[in-house]
Nucleic acid binder design. Structure first.
Length: 550
RNA sequence: GACCCCGUAGCUCAAUUGGAUAGAGCAACAGCCUUCUAAGCUGUAGGUUGCGCGUUCGAUUCGCGCCGGGGUCACCA
């Protein structure tokens, strides 16, 4: 439709000698009273033309003519907006398209052929996933889904490190807890992981290995503790993610960057480009030459690399693996590292424009109006698993993506647990369940043969304002999928689906659906089914279920 | 001190990336079920968009300066 209007208007502009390469843009006005599409050309042109915007708009409008079947009216409003209003029919007839495309409605091919990687969660196996990881998992998976819906070829990837100091400490902690099972006074490492989960792992270890571990020399025993704890934690991490429908295609081990010599290659490349130098026994990256504030250590005097080096090497691998679009989902605590990685990657000859970094802010848990303090050392640490147990997977996922990623997320446990109208998740799901129920009822009344299919409805019969409004909104779904994807802001889709639910409930209250007038009834049922399709497709992207009953 | 995010209704947040009269949910108040799901709908009330300049036809959105909250600034990851 925009295309159609653009052509008409361009022709008019040309005839008025107004086309100075001005961009024609159309927007959907906020208020329905302002029509269905609006353009601001007149205001943009006013200055160069030297006339007031409304006069320019008047000139343009007077030369336009349209097919009355589709366009119901054109008018000038406000400072010089030209508003176009379409007929109800124009919208309702397109409902057939939704019914035809079904679970494909909303998919597009704008990203076709783009090899895309989405990296998220990436927690090291040193403990259970936190609520913050949950937000990241939900955001990452939803963005991955959106990218798939827009045609991208998506790889979901989890980057982790099972070497280094953290894992050493995990081993020491597990070992200490294991020993304490028989000698309560066995010393616990000072910076050890104090969480109860370590004790649980030690107990499991004892059941499997028995006392044999005590016979071994300490290094050997630590090795066993490490791999046992790692396996156990990774298994539970995957299991928890699975509970909210998140799975990965690739688990990329940081350690492989060392064993394959990739780390060394990067250092060599930096040296060759004169971007690395030695000082105080350490290797420094000349980040100042890359536009940053100060140089940074990439290899410590101990010989161990800092986190930056593998991060840069990892991103270099992402490029080498042929990804056209690289999406990184990071928590706000990683903000400072990003610039370094991007600068490093650019200096290695790769285009950092291909990397999209999504930073999300933290999650605050609220219970009884009080903030739940989160600390791994204290007993009140709430794990992602516990949260899912408490509120259920749908609520967890929906709440996690409900806010803009740049906003702090206040997760109200009391609201989340509320199985009532207060809970926004149930509001949207309820609309879906309600439709399912109506369609079942219609089938039982023989208004339609099958609740999943409606043959040749006469969509011209949808004339009520609430019917037309709903139809309009449903037809916007593909634009929302694309817009949400492009913005990397999943909450927009949640907002849209909420609006769809509202539009449906309104329609439901204004129009009785299963009625003796068979043709009207069928048309309304078709609108119901189309709504159900849009909601269900949207839920699919958000990773929540579409209940047939509630 | 430097840099990043946030500041919008009593509370939690939106606002189609610069558009018209700033919108939802919760909380408050008043209505609507003998009919397809009341986990719903309708209405009322609630605002100097932290403050001040600037950019322009037009600013919650962009720029600068303050104020307030959070975060990051390791040879930790």
């Amino acid at each position: 439709m925009k295309q159609y209007l653009a052509e008409k208007i361009s022709a008019v502009l040309k005839s008025l000698n107004y086309d100075g390469g001005t961009k024609l843009t159309f927007e959907k006005p906020k208020l329905e009273a302002h029509g269905d599409l609006t353009t601001n050309v007149a205001m943009v042109l006013a200055k160069t033309v030297g006339k007031n915007p409304r006069a320019v708009a008047q000139e343009i409008v007077s030369k336009l003519s349209f097919d009355a079947q589709d366009v119901a009216g054109v008018d000038i409003a406000g400072p010089g907006f030209i508003n176009f209003r379409f007929t109800g029919r124009f919208f309702t007839k397109q409902i057939a398209e939704i019914l035809a495309q079904r679970e494909l409605f909303g998919k597009s091919t704008v990203g076709a052929g783009k090899k895309t990687q989405v990296e998220f969660v990436s927690a090291n196996p040193t403990g259970p996933l936190s609520v913050g990881h949950g937000r990241q998992a939900a955001i990452g998976d939803t963005i991955a889904n959106l990218l798939e819906w827009t045609g991208h070829d998506v790889t979901r990837e989890y980057y982790y490190n099972n070497a280094g100091r953290q894992m050493r400490m995990l081993a020491e902690s597990t070992y200490a807890r294991f020993r304490q099972l028989s000698e309560p006074d066995f010393p616990f490492p000072e910076d050890g992981y104090q969480g109860e989960y370590i004790t649980a792992i030690a107990e499991e270890l004892k059941e499997g290995q028995g006392e044999k571990l005590l016979q071994l020399e300490k290094e050997k025993a630590l090795e066993i503790c490490k791999s046992f704890a790692e396996d156990s934690l990774f298994q539970s991490i995957k299991q928890v993610l699975g509970r909210i429908g998140v799975t990965f295609d690739v688990f990329y081990n940081e350690d492989s960057l060392y064993s394959s010599g990739k780390i060394k290659e990067v250092i060599d490349e930096f040296r060759k480009k004169g971007l690395a130098y030695d000082k105080d026994g350490a290797v420094w990256l000349k980040t100042t030459a890359l536009g940053l504030e100060q140089d940074r250590v990439i290899v410590k005097s101990s010989g161990e690399p800092t986190y930056r080096l593998p991060d840069i090497a990892y991103h270099r691998e992402k490029f080498k693996r042929g990804f056209d679009l690289i999406v990184d989902i990071f928590g706000a605590d990683h903000i400072s590292t990003i610039q370094e990685v991007l600068a490093g990657v650019r200096s290695l000859g790769y285009d950092p424009e291909k990397i999209k970094v999504v930073i999300h802010q933290f999650v605050t848990l609220m219970r009884d109006g009080q903030q739940v303090k989160m600390s791994k050392r204290l007993a009140n640490f709430v794990t992602l698993d516990e949260l899912i147990e408490e509120v259920g997977p749908d609520v967890a996922r929906f709440f996690f993506i409900m806010r803009a990623t740049s906003s702090h997320l206040e997760f109200d446990l009391d609201l989340a647990k509320e199985q009532s109208e207060k809970n926004p998740v149930y509001y949207v799901q309820y609309a879906h369940a309600r439709i399912a129920s109506i369609l079942r009822f219609a089938e039982s009344q023989k208004t339609i043969e099958k609740s999943t299919e409606i043959q040749n409805p006469n969509l011209d019969l949808l004339k009520e304002p609430s019917e037309v409004s709903l139809a309009k909104l449903l037809l916007e779904f593909p634009e929302w999928v694309e817009g949400t994807c492009f913005a990397y802001e999943p909450h927009r889709l949640a907002t849209y689906l909420h609006d769809v639910a509202t539009a449906f409930h309104r329609f439901y209250h204004e129009c009785r659906i299963v009625i003796p007038e068979h043709d009207v009834s069928k048309a309304r049922l078709a609108l119901c089914l189309a709504t159900k399709i849009v909601l269900s497709n949207g839920f699919n992207i958000l990773g929540i279920s579409a209940p047939e009953k509630m």
